[in-house]
């Protein structure tokens, strides 16, 4: 009934167990897995794996490191979100990620949930994914034979599905150095404060004061995976950020997402919110008197 619980002390040991025990599941904070494991209505979807492999006792998964001054940042997969958001380098260089974490779950959940877990769970509404995609982050994957890195948007392949092969685990998320002058933000809305995102939008913007030099838009909960809004990006890139242009980009963004209707919100509502969020994000990132702070 209860799964076997493994506590490996190294990545290689963890990978070894995951490769040899069919159906074994890696677990870090457990905020998704434990919910799925609890009995609800008898016979009503309880999901208990045969074995759990804890990633909480592996030092290299628990650290945030800068590879060299000004170089890439490597966030261990099992670092709790609270620690990620409190890290001075993350705060200084990845403000949209910090904003996403601050609206993620509750303080208790943020204390144990991890970045690797949020990506590995592969919810289309995962809050950490849009900012990481906007920053061009990569997922470091370690398997029995090798370590590879794939962009976050390629790692997430569908609802609950990732590019992980059997035996592989997420070991870190890496983000390249951030150029100065770029600003970024993450907007999201739930029905109540603590709710899965109905829609989330991460925006990373570089301007010369008037014109958009570069922009990256990544949206969550509006498709089977978090996705780049490339049509809206290309309209804005190189354009003056006047209200008319931004409105046209918002219309493009609304057209290029593919949300669904579910218990939480309608397809039309989600489409509409993407446009609102795009306009508000650009207003926020181009407002000279309101330098960005954490959203809360």
């Amino acid at each position: 009934m209860s799964p076997r619980y493994h506590m490996p002390r190294s990545v290689s040991e963890a990978v070894e167990i995951l490769s040899s025990v069919p159906g074994a599941l890696p677990i870090a904070g457990g905020t998704d897995i434990m919910v799925r494991m609890r009995p609800g209505v008898p016979g009503g979807g309880q999901d208990v794996p045969p074995a759990l492999v804890s990633l909480r006792h592996i030092p290299e998964l628990a650290a945030i490191e800068e590879s060299d001054p000004g170089g890439a940042l490597r966030i261990g997969a099992a670092v709790p979100l609270r620690e990620v958001a409190d890290n001075p380098t993350v705060k200084a260089t990845l403000p949209a990620l910090v904003e996403a974490i601050e609206v993620f779950g509750s303080p208790q959940i943020r204390n144990v949930a991890t970045l690797g877990g949020n990506l590995g769970n592969a919810s289309p509404a995962a809050d950490s994914a849009p900012p990481l995609i906007a920053y061009g982050a990569r997922v470091e994957i370690t398997g029995p034979d090798s370590t590879r890195r794939v962009p976050v948007e390629e790692f997430l392949t569908g609802p609950g599905r990732t590019a992980l092969a059997p035996g592989e685990i997420v070991t870190a998320v890496t983000v390249g150095p951030r150029p100065t002058g770029e600003r970024s933000t993450y907007l999201r809305q739930g029905r109540v404060r603590m709710d899965v995102a109905l829609v989330g939008l991460a925006t990373r913007l570089a301007t010369d004061g008037v014109t958009c030099v570069d922009i990256r838009l990544a949206a969550g909960a509006v498709g089977p995976t978090p996705l780049r809004l490339t049509a809206a990006e290309s309209l804005l890139r190189g354009s003056r950020l006047d209200p008319d242009t931004v409105a046209r980009a918002a219309a493009r963004a609304e057209a290029e997402v593919s949300p669904i209707t579910d218990i939480r919100a309608s397809e039309g509502y989600r489409r509409h919110l993407i446009g609102v969020f795009l306009r508000r994000s650009i207003a926020r990132l181009t407002d000279p008197v309101s330098p960005q702070e954490g959203s809360s």
């Binding site: 919910v35 609800g40 109540v192 404060r193 603590m194 709710d195 218990i263 939480r264």
Partner: peptide
């Protein structure tokens, strides 16, 4: 404002507090 019980054909579809939303301290 937020509590929306979904009952279809005699079945409650959101019998969890993650889907049936009572106000939290932030609301």
């Amino acid at each position: 404002l937020s509590e929306n019980l979904v009952v279809e054909n005699g079945h409650i579809l959101n019998p969890r507090l993650s889907g049936y939303l009572i106000p939290g301290i932030g609301d």
